[in-house]
Write a protein that binds this DNA or RNA. Sequence first.
DNA 1: CGTCAATTTGACACGCGTCAACTAATGTGG
DNA 2: CCACATTAGTTGACGCGTGTCAAATTGACG
Lengths: 259, 259
Amino acid sequence: MNTTVSFTTSPLPLPTAPRQVPLRNVTKIRTNCSNCSLRNLCLPCGLKGRDMARAEEVVYTRKRVNRGESLYRTGDPFLSLYAIRNGFFKSTLTLADGRDQVTAFHMRGEMLGMDGIGAGAHESTAIALEDSEVCVMPYGLLQQLSRDIPELQNQFHKVMSRELVREHGVMMLLGSMRTNERVAAFLLNLAKRLGACGYSSKQFQLCMTRREIGSYLGLQLETVSRAFSQFQENGFLSVQQRQIGILDVNGLQTALGKR
Amino acid sequence: MNTTVSFTTSPLPLPTAPRQVPLRNVTKIRTNCSNCSLRNLCLPCGLKGRDMARAEEVVYTRKRVNRGESLYRTGDPFLSLYAIRNGFFKSTLTLADGRDQVTAFHMRGEMLGMDGIGAGAHESTAIALEDSEVCVMPYGLLQQLSRDIPELQNQFHKVMSRELVREHGVMMLLGSMRTNERVAAFLLNLAKRLGACGYSSKQFQLCMTRREIGSYLGLQLETVSRAFSQFQENGFLSVQQRQIGILDVNGLQTALGKR
DNA sequence: CGTCAATTTGACACGCGTCAACTAATGTGG
DNA sequence: CCACATTAGTTGACGCGTGTCAAATTGACG
């Protein structure tokens, strides 16, 4: 906490007692990264043969998290990082006065929990937006293995660095863009990431509410709704509740550049 | 050096390092972390005896960066991380349409450049806001050493993690706070960090313009100026151009919680 | 001393927040 | 399966907080 963190009076709010991991949700099946469909997206990306085999040691459990449940909460002791095997999460932070904000949406292949390393306790709260499954990677084990496997060390550093870059993107979004730009950027980014996972990037179902999108984008839910409606009028989108169809990528992209 | 520090004048005298003419800004003098006044703020924080001595190997050059000059620019190949030994930097990002935004202000003891690891090229541009000096830490060397020194590995991960947490703070600021809250949070945070470095946290000289502050806070420069004026009317601050006096910390802190 | 950048302050406009009403979807219990 | 409650989403009206534009002042620098 000695860097530039807390803008609130109390450093790290610890509102709830740390929740223990319920055992029933932990699968003791040895996971196999080599065969995992996410091996080129996830941490072991780029590892070869022997290294990949060894890296698997770091993932020795999976955990199911049902919709609405938390993977960890602010203040929980930091023990592990998590790779999303399936599903969707949001990360949230709460200010001292109770206002909270969504700081990220995470999908399969992405890593969670890195903000806990610095203080030894999770800073944010991660909540599943749909029934999900994560690979649990005990941090101590990861550290140990990455000493032996330089390429794993490198991959891990890259993952953290890319998370920094991702957050820069959110900062640009919040600091320099207007409503329609933010919403367009959000949708294009989501579409791209869905495409990278093998899903359709033209047609998808949002798993978050307008309020959650607004919280992430620094907007009110009504403003998000209006932006969707406007894009629909422009013929850029088809919107039916949470079912989104992207009809005109270029249109959205030019909406991004408009002041 | 005493409590009041001027950020706009030349760097603070370094009793240990005679100001000889540097070879193209790179000093080939071996740096000594053990004796550095920042050893408890900087990367080797927490390292003991032997480890500290070995960790010094990673810092084998210093570099001077004069006011207005860049340490690196977007797209520059990523080779090293930097620890600020003295001075002040801003990090900026530029969108495709030319809009740019300050994403961070960095002061002595803080690390720069981590956003370059992921892509192998620097994502942001780092510009000195006053004549500054940094310790250059070649990334390859750091990686190699941190395999041998677990505590160094751990410290490095913590530094990156704290940077993530810091950015979360900015996201909260940009997404959930109003003008006066943002400005109050900015000032309190700056004061705290100055205090942590041994400077006065009540009386200091800003080394950035209103425009740069505004860019960082997602506000127009006029709005920042008005917030300063208002805090002055409230008796929270004394403002004379860039000379800031914090008269009422509690006042500022309650301004933080007000919607 | 003149020039230019930085800052302050005022006037005004408008984008977005706020409040409210309505509709659509989802879930729940009988 | 229906009746009902609850939550999510849409749309309109209105006002406030900031952005925008402009002008004056101060300070920095050659």
